[in-house]
């Protein structure tokens, strides 16, 4: 986990479920093939309905049409981010698009777990609701060791909840490294 995660914000609403993060029809691509996996970046967050894509504007796709990488590095969401299916393709798609962190009020547990155990993105929980305080395109900076989010565009600062137990897995890199350190897997 990097000490500083910085980049442009992409703002979405509450209950962004895994079908919005990566629509089921795209789950057929290989996650390991270098050529095919890029499509997860292309279709990341493509299931978010028109009018809600990149708040407050509503018409800004996360990944530009025909691109494979997003220009946004930090997704800001409301409550119950990642609800729905268990598909690990969801945090993977965000990572593949170039996203490094999500800041949401709360998460569905499987998404949270997948994000951490696979080492795809860092899922931060915000203390206050940020949807109305951050606009898509604002420049954000997260200090992961201090647990602080700065909005460079507005000059506002927000505290994030501590990562707790999962910080050990995030520091190890993923659950395999963590399991090796715990002695459940041969090094």
């Amino acid at each position: 986990m990097k000490k500083i995660i910085a980049g442009a914000a992409y703002v979405v609403g509450d209950a962004i479920d895994t079908d919005q993060i990566i629509p089921a029809e795209h789950l057929v691509y290989s996650l390991s093939d270098a050529e095919e996996r890029r499509y997860y970046g292309r279709y990341a967050l493509s299931g978010v309905p028109q009018g809600q894509q990149g708040l407050p504007y509503g018409d800004r796709p996360f990944t530009a049409p025909n691109a494979f990488r997003s220009e946004y590095a930090i997704v800001v969401g409301g409550s119950n981010f990642g609800c729905g299916s268990s598909r690990e393709h969801a945090p993977f798609a965000l990572q593949e698009a170039g996203c490094a962190a999500v800041v949401a009020e709360s998460y569905a547990r499987i998404f949270y777990r997948n994000a951490v155990d696979g080492g795809f993105i860092v899922p931060f929980e915000s203390i206050e609701r940020l949807l109305e305080r951050v606009r898509t395109g604002d420049l954000l900076e997260i200090d992961t060791s201090l647990g602080k989010l700065s909005n460079r565009t507005t000059g506002e600062e927000f505290l994030l909840k501590p990562l707790g137990d999962v910080a050990d897995i995030l520091k190890a890199g993923n659950v395999f490294e963590f399991a090796r350190q715990a002695g459940f897997m041969p090094a």
Partner: peptide, 28 residues
């Protein structure tokens, strides 16, 4: 699969996980 919780109707613990956790189980 997220609906793995279905099996709990039999008085067992069941839950859904992602591929990474499943791969760790597959090995260990």
């Amino acid at each position: 699969d997220s609906h793995t919780c279905t099996s709990g109707a039999f008085g067992m613990f069941s839950t859904g996980v992602g591929n990474t956790d499943a791969a760790l189980i597959m090995g260990t």
